[in-house]
Design a protein around this nucleic acid. Structure first.
Length: 617
DNA sequence: TGGGAGTCAATATG
DNA sequence: CATATTGACTCCCA
């Protein structure tokens, strides 16, 4: 039975399409092993405890892979009504090119853009969008060829095409592995097993999203725009807030819940535009985000009207290049010294961690569901003139919403009612803090190793695993779910953070050269400098794309091997096991921490799941 | 129901 | 401190 089910579901697994990660090697788990005493994690489990379980829990399938993306898509993009809007949007946007101001800026920006395709993000929000859908737009005479976009659009609708060229492949993982293999994993060396195969590297959407991006550049910054992105000196920066405000933001989300409440994300622009400038692009330099424009003509938003279809419309009509958008946001935050927490809470009504994650691993627009709202907010924010953007940050939530016309902070869907779980102590009366379970090294490694082989272990298997690792079944289930999802995202393991990317570009002169003056460049660099990370996250820093890291790779490979061998060894299993057990309880182990630390030094830990990283071999 | 999506928010890392 | 990671929640959907 399982198998059948899995098979069906497996599609997702296939998705894991992550790009070149393959090449990367990420061996997280393995890395750990190295220094670890090499205790075999496998040991923990009874030799073939898995064998007892059903034989092919996982399944089959895989092959279908590509499907996933495609499947999801359809719904959104296809929405019929949208179509109508789309055109509008385009039209409004189009003009941008004609804008005087726009053109000005655009020029600089454009150049930038042209350089490395991947990296540049448009200077204005416009660039973030890709007006897909609307064929009509083509008609327009864009300065830029729409064709690319359109094309994309077609794809989108059609199937996943994804921006990034996700390809369907079926990585090994997907395929069903049988318990046997898993057990071997646990108990023996899996050199061979390791999935090395597969890999088709794919980029999720990252590879070259650009096509989707529309190039129009409308200048948002208040006229400013030297660098196009507003690099100019950190203009006004965000003033560190008086703390106090923050709370409000934070709370909001939680208080309201119900995900459905989401409202129209309003288009900041809309409201703002009224405040600031006219809605239409032309009126001022301020660009109204295309999306906004689009919508406007058609209907009026009532922020309150949560049911307002407009929301949907907007989403459908416009294709926001999330990756580009995230780069832009990251840049803006850095440039103006806006902490993620502030931006996340005030503008997005989300937590800092969420924002960080989104920025680093943006899902392609066409794959987003309700998550689009968050990106819309980002989009709407960047679409505002600088002054407005900063002002908004200082406002209180309500004000922001009011001014922006945005719906009230959309509560996160998952608002958590503080009901924490039992696991720890059941008697936490009030809202105690939810202690967070941290897997022991062994637990984690074991889980990751299993995950490599089987992304979707059967219930039984999960149960077995749970028992052996002394974890709750739910914990194990959560692990796999999270692992699947995260591996699927393509975490940009191989790439630096958006901000880093920008920084690199500038450093390299890729961008800077084009239109920036030396001074500008300096400023830019300076700005970036702040965040240019050191070698810390080695993995990430190395730019995965390049093959320059051969050395690194070699090291990793070695380590992986080592890791695998270690696995086999497993002498100290017992100890580990005990540790593991102990950890389950709320007891942190110093030893482990130490071990981890050590390990990390040697092998970069991307923190990704094995699946994502496999590729090595 | 189970799988997913979107997040939270506690922790880790820097 | 700020940002990154990540186990677990809540809500949805098939």
């Amino acid at each position: 039975m399982e198998s059948s089910r899995t098979a069906a579901t497996s599609t997702n697994g296939t998705e894991k399409s992550r790009r070149r990660n393959t090449d990367y090697l990420q061996i997280d788990p393995s890395s750990t092993f190295i220094n670890n005493t090499g205790r075999g994690f496998a040991e923990e489990l009874p030799e073939n405890f898995l064998d007892t379980i059903s034989p092919h829990p996982i399944t089959p399938s895989a092959s279908t892979s590509s499907a996933t993306s495609a499947t999801e898509e359809p719904a959104t993009s296809s929405a019929p009504q949208l179509a109508s809007l789309a055109p509008m949007s385009m039209s409004s946007e189009q003009p941008s090119s004609s804008f005087s101001s726009a053109s000005l800026l655009s020029s600089s920006y454009e150049t930038i853009k042209n350089e490395p395709e991947d990296y540049r993000f448009s200077g204005s929000t416009a660039g973030l969008l890709s007006p897909l859908h609307v064929d009509s737009r083509r008609r327009e005479s864009h300065d830029f060829n729409t064709s690319p976009y359109i094309k994309e659009e077609e794809d989108l609708d059609g199937s996943h095409l994804l921006m990034g060229g996700i390809r369907p492949d079926t990585p090994t993982n997907d395929r069903s592995t049988d318990l046997g293999s898993i057990s071997s994993l646990l108990n023996e060396d899996h050199h061979t097993n390791t999935i090395g195969q597969s890999p088709s590297p794919r980029s999720t959407f990252g590879s070259d999203p650009t096509p989707m991006i529309q190039r129009q550049l409308i200048k948002n910054e208040d006229g400013v725009s030297p660098g196009s992105m507003g690099f100019s000196k950190n203009h006004q920066g965000y003033q560190k807030p008086r703390n106090g405000d923050r709370m409000e933001y934070e709370k909001a989300p939680y208080q309201r819940n119900s995900r459905k409440q989401k409202k129209p994300l309003g288009l900041l622009n809309q409201a703002l535009s009224s405040v600031i400038s006219t809605p239409t692009i032309s009126s001022s330099n301020i660009p109204t985000p295309p999306s906004a424009h689009i919508a406007q003509p058609r209907r009026i938003y009532s922020t309150q009207d949560s049911n307002d279809p407009l929301n949907a419309e907007i989403g459908d009509d416009i294709y926001i290049d999330t990756k580009d958008l995230c780069k832009r946001i990251a840049f803006e935050l850095k440039n103006h010294s806006i902490p993620q927490a502030i931006f996340a809470e005030r503008i997005l009504c989300r937590s800092q961690g969420t924002l960080s994650d989104l920025l680093r691993n943006p899902k392609p627009w066409n794959k987003l569901k309700s998550g689009r709202e968050t990106f819309r907010r980002m989009y709407n924010w960047v679409a505002q003139p600088l002054a407005t953007r900063l002002a908004i940050l200082d406002m209180k939530t309500e004000d922001v919403n009011r001014a922006s016309g945005m719906s009230p902070p959309t509560p996160a869907q998952n608002v958590r009612t503080h009901s924490f779980r039992r696991s720890t102590s059941d008697h936490d009366g009030p809202v105690s803090k939810r202690p967070r379970l941290v897997f022991t090294d062994i637990q984690k490694r074991t889980l990751q190793a299993i995950f490599k082989e089987t992304q979707r272990p059967s219930r039984e298997m999960q149960q077995t695993i749970a028992e052996h690792l002394r974890l709750d079944l739910s914990t194990v289930a959560n692990f796999f779910m999270n692992a699947r999802r995260r591996s699927r995202l393509g975490g940009n393991i191989d790439e630096p953070t958006p901000f880093q990317q920008m920084a690199e570009m500038y450093k390299e002169g890729a961008i800077a050269t084009s239109n920036h003056s030396a001074e500008q460049r300096e400023m830019i660099e300076r700005g970036f400098g702040v965040s240019i990370p050191g070698p810390s996250h080695s993995g990430e820093l190395l730019n995965g794309d390049s093959h320059e890291d051969d050395e690194e790779l070699d090291e990793l490979n070695d380590s992986e091997l080592a890791y695998e061998e270690d696995v086999e060894i497993g002498d100290e299993e017992e100890e580990d096991e005990e540790q593991a057990n102990g950890d389950i309880l709320p007891t942190p182990k110093v030893e482990e921490l130490e071990e981890k630390t050590v390990i990390k030094e040697e092998a970069p830990d991307d923190g990704e799941y094995g699946a994502t990283k496999l590729a090595a071999n």
